[in-house]
Amino acid sequence: MAFSAYLIHLGILSCMYVMLAISLNLALGFTGMLNLGHVAFFGIGAYITAILSMQGLPLWLTCILAIIGGLIAGILLAFPTARLRGDYLALATLGFTFIMAAIARNWQSLTRGALGIPGIPRLVASNEQYLFWISLSTVIVALLVSWLTKSSIGRTLQAIRDDELGAMVLGKNVFAYRMLALGVSASIAALAGFFFAHFITFIDPSVFSIDDLILMFAMVILGGLASNKGSVIGGVIIFLLPEPLRFIGFSSSIVGPARAILFALILIGMLVYRPRGIFGKVDLS
């Protein structure tokens, strides 16, 4: 019985990470935006959910507001960073993550700062039901992104990734497309944050941690850039890989860092030895 509860727990978090990997891949793999702000969108979704549901707002409304919040954050980030590419975009989006973390730590009247927000109501009574809802959402997200990337919009996003100028002279508004990609990507990350907040029932500024960013990048790189199938498989594999560590009998103070080390090693190893991952056909440039 305890083991099946554990499996359900793993299933729920796997779904959440699959959503994060798919959405990161939309910006990173399909559009070629080196976005280190993805974890911030996740955190924004989680904080919006936590703060609003503590105010007693109904679930469906916090869910929609979290998604809209992510969308707005993505679009807001797209505006100032419109002219930045490559390393500079990476630095600016990383800066965005840090600013969001600093706000979460310091705007105490809203976020309770480092104390975090405990006692977030659960989405549904049982984890079985929760697994159903998050699986359903993940499937919808996966189908939506898969449709989007196969559509003419997705084709244009990939064209922009390969050659912005080439796309511009074919009449494509590069800024609008990049904003769209970042907005959709961010709103999905925020939806993952919504599920996270309701499942863990406690959040603090560590939701903006860079460790999780590396985790998401490892998932996308392992699965393969610009491959939705890859994001699903990469997300599940990377999330489940360190689970055996729990059974070896390490203390929890070792398991946390050991997980992070494993993710970092996988990421670096993939970049060095197999940069295209399992299903990827595209190089990060």
Binding site: A260, I261, A264, L265, L271, L284
Partner: peptide
């Protein structure tokens, strides 16, 4: 001949790796 983006992500990976090695 990895791109800048790859080197940058690898360097963030190394950063996280070092932090957690120190933790352990």
């Amino acid at each position: 001949h990895a791109s800048n983006a790859v080197l940058l992500i690898a360097s963030i990976g190394l950063m996280i790796l070092t932090t957690n090695l120190i933790l352990i």
